[in-house]
Deep mutational scan, measured.
Amino acid sequence: ETEYTFDDKREADRAAKEAQNNGLRVHVTKDGNRWKVRID
């Protein structure tokens, strides 16, 4: 399990989409004014 934090939602969405394309499970959550992408 890996977690990334992004300031920009577009960057978070791009990272999530890339991980999904690689067959990974992805969870995107909002943390204040930042975005967390957790990859299982």
Rank of each mutant, 00 (worst) to 15 (best):
E1W: 15
E1I: 15
E1G: 14
E1M: 15
E1T: 14
E1F: 15
E1S: 14
T2L: 13
T2G: 11
T2D: 08
T2F: 13
T2K: 12
T2P: 06
E3V: 14
E3F: 11
E3C: 12
E3G: 04
E3P: 04
Y4A: 05
Y4S: 04
Y4T: 05
Y4G: 04
Y4C: 12
T5K: 04
T5V: 14
T5D: 05
T5G: 04
T5H: 10
F6K: 01
F6P: 01
F6L: 02
F6D: 00
D7K: 09
D7G: 07
D7F: 11
D7Q: 08
D7W: 11
D8H: 09
D8A: 05
D8R: 07
D8P: 01
D8N: 14
D8T: 15
K9H: 07
K9Y: 14
K9A: 06
R10A: 14
R10F: 12
E11L: 09
E11Y: 05
E11I: 05
E11S: 12
A12M: 02
A12R: 01
A12C: 04
A12W: 00
D13S: 05
D13G: 03
D13K: 06
D13R: 06
D13F: 15
D13I: 14
R14F: 09
R14Y: 08
R14S: 07
R14V: 07
A15M: 14
A15C: 12
A15L: 14
A15P: 01
A15K: 11
A15S: 04
A15F: 15
A16M: 07
A16H: 03
A16L: 05
A16N: 02
K17E: 11
K17Q: 13
K17Y: 10
E18A: 12
A19G: 03
A19F: 15
Q20R: 14
Q20C: 09
N21R: 13
N21T: 10
N21A: 14
N22Y: 05
N22H: 11
N22A: 14
G23W: 02
G23Q: 03
G23R: 03
G23K: 03
G23H: 04
G23E: 02
G23Y: 03
L24Q: 07
L24P: 00
L24V: 04
L24T: 03
L24W: 12
R25L: 08
R25H: 11
R25P: 04
V26I: 04
V26P: 04
V26T: 05
V26F: 04
V26L: 02
V26M: 02
V26A: 14
H27T: 15
H27S: 13
H27M: 11
H27E: 12
V28G: 00
V28Q: 03
V28E: 01
V28K: 02
V28S: 02
V28N: 00
V28I: 12
V28F: 03
V28A: 01
T29F: 15
T29K: 06
T29P: 00
T29N: 04
K30S: 07
K30E: 06
K30C: 06
D31G: 02
D31L: 07
D31A: 07
D31S: 07
G32A: 03
G32R: 03
G32E: 04
G32S: 02
G32Y: 01
N33K: 07
N33E: 12
N33D: 14
R34E: 08
R34F: 11
R34S: 10
R34P: 00
R34Y: 10
R34I: 11
R34K: 13
W35M: 00
W35C: 00
W35Y: 05
W35N: 00
W35T: 00
W35P: 01
W35Q: 00
W35I: 02
W35A: 00
K36W: 05
K36A: 06
K36P: 02
V37M: 04
V37W: 00
V37Q: 00
V37T: 01
V37K: 01
V37L: 08
R38Y: 13
R38I: 15
R38N: 09
R38K: 12
R38T: 15
R38Q: 11
R38V: 15
I39Q: 03
I39V: 10
D40P: 05
D40V: 14
D40S: 14
D40F: 15
D40I: 15
D40A: 11
D40L: 15
